[in-house]
Design a protein around this nucleic acid. Sequence first.
DNA 1: ATAGGGTTAG
Length: 490
Amino acid sequence: MCSFCGFSPDQSSCNALFCVLVDAGACNAAKSLLDCPGFTPEPASLEDYIQCLSRAGMVEDAVDMLKRASFCPSVATWNASILGCLRAGRTDLIWTLYEQMTESGVVVSINVETVGYLIMAFCAENKVLKGYELLRELLENGLHPDNVVFNALIRGFCKERQYARVSEILHIMIAKQCNPDIFTYQEIINGLLKRKNSEGFRVFNDLKDRGYFPDRVMYTTVIKGLCEMGWTGEARKLGFEMIKKGFQPNEYTYNVMMHGYFKIGDLVAARKIFEDMCGRGYAGTTVSYSTMISGLCLHGKTDEAQSLFEEMFQKGIIRDLITYNSLINGLCKKGELVKATKLLNELLAQGLEPSVFSFNPLIKGLCEEGDTQGAIRLWKDMCDRHLEPTASTHDYIITGLCKEGNSLQGMEWLLNIPRWKLKPHEQTFEYLINSLSQEDRLDDILVVLDIIFRIGYRLNESTIHSLVSKFCRDSFHFPDLWLEKILERN
DNA sequence: ATAGGGTTAG
């Protein structure tokens, strides 16, 4: 008997039902029908089923079906599965699929769609160069992929700041008559502006001169980039231009501008935008409030930020992790650690999952206040939640320990940072060396110096002077090799 | 497919 339909249907009814379910995109129902004893769907409907699974994001099931397939799947089915994996971010599965596909006798290299997906998979794994090599192979075979694939490569090369490659791809696109579209330009402008490269703005203006019409998203993107580069004036002009072209700024645009004004410290203008947003009904969102709160905190207006935080509660606007983190950070900067701790507890009580940014400001504050042991307790709490401390977290604690005369513990902390993890700040080492030196821990200094050299840091001149004189005064054997290293590096 | 808020230390 079938657990799905409750009776034992014959093979052909099962098949008909299976087809209907697959057509309707009801993957789960179709899946349970497969458990029907003795039911073997026809290859054609199985292929449809695999494609259906892939589209629905059930990629593991799709890959599993392909693995067990007793028939030879069509290229369309392979492609659908690969695309599904790409969308689900499971590039790992793509490589197994690719292998199987080759084994089953498909000549992948001449299949533009498949190769395109593989290129995008490489890009998603930050192996853009490998994707580029595949592109070259395609071109050698007289083929070229879709714009989407070119755009992915451009995005990848922008990320790697390989701008020569970016322009090379643009030229290939034009040569192959795949005219760069609005998305292509968006990748370039985004890719450049995100990296604070003014070239992005030039490309944008060039694009307008050539008759492309930027849309609202594009305007917002460029305005954001300009704000990040500190070109708030240009950003404002662009805002007006956008309105003149008939695009009303929406909550994204407003938010980006607000952020920009906070960045240059123009609180009046930022508040004005917030009011304008209110007037248009855009301001009542978690994001707009968070922007206000973080911006106000950035300029020490913690009280105003706190009242906005309260206002959110009264208006029933959800306060999310970023809202909490913004205010926690602001309060800590002002030394209001008790309030900040209360907020952290509130965040946890709300069932929100904290992030490193929830803990870091508090750890920093506690260390500065002289309660490094309290900071270490928080650090442990953070690690118990499987949050990875940042390099600066270590900096706060090591410096804090040194300040409290615990330079030995500071050194132990340093030694406990796993090798492969982020390295502490150069200044932290300086601090540690000076503290150890004050406590006459010459052996320990040698240990720390060894780490400094291995990382490739250099020491401050005054630190070197005091170290050398200290070692000489105490007629301590200072290894010649290290003396050489110090001198050679400074 | 496309856009927004939390990161150091100066």
